[in-house]
Design a protein around this nucleic acid. Structure first.
Lengths: 242, 242
DNA sequence: GCGGCGCACTTACGGTGTAAGGTTGCGGGA
DNA sequence: TCCCGCAACCTTACACCGTAAGTGCGCCGC
């Protein structure tokens, strides 16, 4: 950005180095035409796999090329930019999310959708923080949103209430998934966690509650808040229908 | 990372260049000793300001140096790394968050804390996505968490329930703040939003609810979900106290 | 006067995304 | 049979990034 004063100095002073790089390691046959067997899907799969294994920071075109046995720039034949790649990765995960089909008990279906969403997040904990921050602008994304929104509209609310409840539901499940995947001492932070002893001294409430913040309580915590919310929605439903 | 084969070549071949760089643009006086008037606080302020104006991606040490009239590396005298800088920026914003002091109506105080949190996020919409993903490992962060957790413990729940409700509350407000700051068509996504006509054709629910997703409904949406949650907590409180 | 040291500057390295253009080998019309 | 176009892939180069390491100015206490 910013064009930064040009600096068009071509230079071109030679000094080629000639490069010892020869006989690239994997993917022996490289008959050029169709050689490395690259494809958009293979790239997206490799990226998701790499994220699951090493985290978001590990993803770069050069690294992916290494992983796939080709040069970084070759990937640009299938994806116009890294942002598009990330879109595609997220699409793949979001696309696999199951939304309960229309049926009788809308509360049960909303509940199921919530647990499915959580399972998706926990299935890709290193990717999820990106999903949380990333909006679903793609075809796959908006259709998924449409399906979930449908659950609330089938609940018998007026349009405005259904829309709001849909969003409130989304707030809860995204916040929960984010906390469970990028939770305390897991997100990006340079400072090493405050020492136990200091917490004990200055944070009596945290110290007392510490046992309940352990991973084995995550599920029950999620369940409790979800049921609180669902119950509230059900009561709202009854009061409106009266 | 990875230590990458060392390459300790000192070299030191001279070739000084002497640098035409002279009379750097701003901050005319540079008497060296205290010249540029740098300080940790000034750097953090500049970073926050830059984020508010141009977003997270605009922040780099070189750019901040430009902003402050000094070289990038000078900043390392006050902050050991960019991660620490971001920690400090977040600390500053989180530190300014007001948690209602102990009093009689714990529900009212929780409600106020929620609205304060939302106001903080909306006050720094470009920074907030980082806050959401970033865990509060610092002294300032954990104490703030401790205060909020205190609100729930004063509500008269047993330790386990207080801890879970505190988290559930956090899920909701962080999810909400994230959606309002990085919401649809605002987060990082390469794909331009799906066209209106396509949504109209394939996403009947979204199309019908579109009016209620506009910013002027954000506040009411937040209020509705928050009240649902608070009401649920209050009823839980009553049923336990029975 | 002077030594030390704090603060800022300089240089360099290995990484990033990606623009631009080069090279290969296959499929299909002439 | 020739050859051309073109998809697939590689090469080079650029401007940026975070940061390790070393340099040097100018103020302070002695």
């Amino acid at each position: 950005m910013q064009a930064q004063k040009g600096r068009a100095s071509r230079g071109g002073d030679g000094r080629h180095k000639k490069a010892a790089a020869k006989a690239r390691s994997p993917a022996g046959r490289r008959s050029r035409g169709n050689g490395a067997g690259l494809s958009r899907e293979a790239i997206v799969d490799a990226a998701l796999d790499l994220i699951d294994r090493e985290g978001l920071d590990a993803v770069s075109f050069r690294r992916l090329g290494e992983e796939l046995g080709c040069e970084a720039m070759s990937l640009y034949h299938y994806l116009p930019s890294k942002a598009h790649l990330m879109d595609a990765v997220i699409d793949q995960v979001i696309g696999g999310l199951e939304v309960p089909p229309p049926g009788s008990d809308w509360i049960a279906r909303v509940r199921q959708a919530a647990w499915n969403y959580r399972a998706m997040a926990l299935g890709h904990p290193r990717l999820y923080p990106l999903i949380a921050v990333h909006r679903l602008n793609t075809r796959v994304g908006v259709r998924k949103l449409d399906q979930v929104l449908g659950l609330f509209r089938e609940g018998g609310f007026d349009d405005a209430t259904a829309a709001r409840l849909f969003r409130d539901f989304g707030y809860y499940i995204t916040g929960a998934a984010l906390d469970e995947t990028a939770g305390y001492a897991k997100g990006p932070s340079a400072a090493e966690p405050v020492s136990e002893t200091e917490i004990a001294r200055h944070c009596p409430n945290l110290a007392a509650s510490a046992p309940y913040f352990k991973p084995q309580h995550f599920e029950e915590t999620f369940r409790q808040g979800l049921e609180l919310l669902l119950e509230g929605m059900a009561r709202l439903r009854r009061s409106k229908a009266r």
